[in-house]
């Protein structure tokens, strides 16, 4: 009994507990799908999750950076739409090569992100308001470029969009999906193994402590918003690869999907806690639900939102409970003995 309780406590206290729950939930949902529909078992169904959600995965990674430092970036959906639009416009109206158009778009994302980050940090403003302003600005600019859909007909770009990267005999993934996986990997390494990444977490834990420990708070915060801006633009490129259009209403409300994915993946809105693979599974869970609905055939796609809403609620409450439990555990810790012996009160 003693061991079981201690194990339970250790599990709850583990930073990966929330991630574990998310993965488990994904497995259960997928398992249910496999049990109910024959087609679900095809590997391509799984790969499609990455193909369809490449843009959301990239955007979620970016927004997760801002959530770690107790910030937020509401402009991601609008920056994504603007990126699609600029890309489509450049390819339709100029002779620039694809790589140059993409470079322009990515640079634009970096500039927008850096500007927002600089304003937020320099004047100590609410990220909510500044990125809301950014959201309106970008959405407006998108409409100024064109109120109609611009088709992307550039041959190179469409070739990239329809290129299939085979995975053995199992199926294929798209360029966008590979892009998303690369972004995930880089983000995980940056957050886990670089000074910058650890400074991001430290700021999320306590900005004033981070400053007193001599960490470069200002620079780090600006870079975080720059990363979010960059990811939004890159997400825009991935989105364009799927949609092959620039359109004013692309990515509407995507910031909320991204926040939801991140939170379901274990990111704490109180800052300082996030796990990049968790964010991936947050997106995949939304994808699975959508797949479910498409297999079922009669339900409206809006059911995704209903389920995600419920999940969000559950996860937020779960996080609150974990935090509470941790606070209780810490009160019982002492320095004299190793932690196993130091919590005799727990095991009784």
């Amino acid at each position: 009994m003693r061991g079981v309780k201690k194990l339970a406590n250790d599990m709850i206290a583990s930073p990966y507990f929330s991630f574990g729950v998310t993965v488990l939930l994904f497995a259960v949902l997928y398992g249910t799908g496999v049990a109910m529909y024959k087609g679900f078992l095809r590997p391509q169904v799984f790969f499609n999750l990455f193909i369809d959600n490449a843009a959301l995965i990239i955007v979620t990674v970016g927004i997760t950076f801002t959530l770690i430092i107790v910030g937020i970036d509401l402009s991601v959906g609008a920056v994504l739409a603007l990126s699609c639009m600029v890309l489509a416009w450049l390819l339709a109206n100029t002779a620039v090569p694809v790589w140059a158009a993409v470079a322009v778009v990515l640079l634009m994302g970096i500039v927008i992100g850096a500007a927002q980050g600089y304003i937020i940090t320099k004047f100590d403003l609410q990220p909510f308001i500044i990125t809301l302003a950014g959201m309106f600005f970008c959405r407006g600019m998108t409409a100024v470029i064109s109120r109609d859909t611009i088709q992307i007909t550039n041959e190179t770009f469409t070739a990239i969009a329809s290129y299939r990267i085979p995975i053995g005999d199992l199926g294929f993934v798209s360029v966008g999906a590979v892009l998303a996986l690369i972004v995930l990997a880089i983000a995980a390494v940056v957050l886990g193994f670089t000074k910058f990444g650890r400074a991001v977490f430290a700021i999320g834990g306590s900005e004033s402590s981070a400053a007193l420990m001599g960490l470069p708070v200002f620079r780090t915060k600006v870079i975080v918003y720059t990363i979010s801006g960059f990811c939004s633009a890159l997400g825009g490129v991935a989105y364009a690869l799927i949609m092959l259009t620039g359109y004013n209403l692309h990515g509407l409300g995507m910031e909320m999907d991204a926040i939801a994915s991140s939170v379901i993946g274990g990111t704490l809105l109180t800052g300082g806690v996030a796990f990049i693979p968790g964010a991936l599974f947050g997106v995949l869970i939304q994808g699975v639900i959508l797949t479910f609905i498409s297999f079922q055939g009669t339900l409206s796609a809006w059911w995704t939102k209903i389920v995600v809403g419920a999940l969000l609620c559950v996860f937020i409450v779960m996080q609150a409970l974990i935090t509470e439990q941790k606070a209780r555990l810490s009160k019982k810790s002492s320095m004299g003995e190793p932690p196993e012996k130091a919590k005799p009160g727990l095991a009784g």
Partner: peptide, 29 residues
């Protein structure tokens, strides 16, 4: 060392001691 402990509660004990001056191997922490 301040009265209000100025560390980051979300980081590990070890990291709180070394953050900002982490030893690195091949460029990574």
């Amino acid at each position: 060392v301040y009265q209000e402990v100025n560390l980051c509660k979300n980081l590990t004990v070890a990291e709180n001691i070394f953050i900002g001056r982490e030893p690195r191997k091949h460029g990574f922490i």
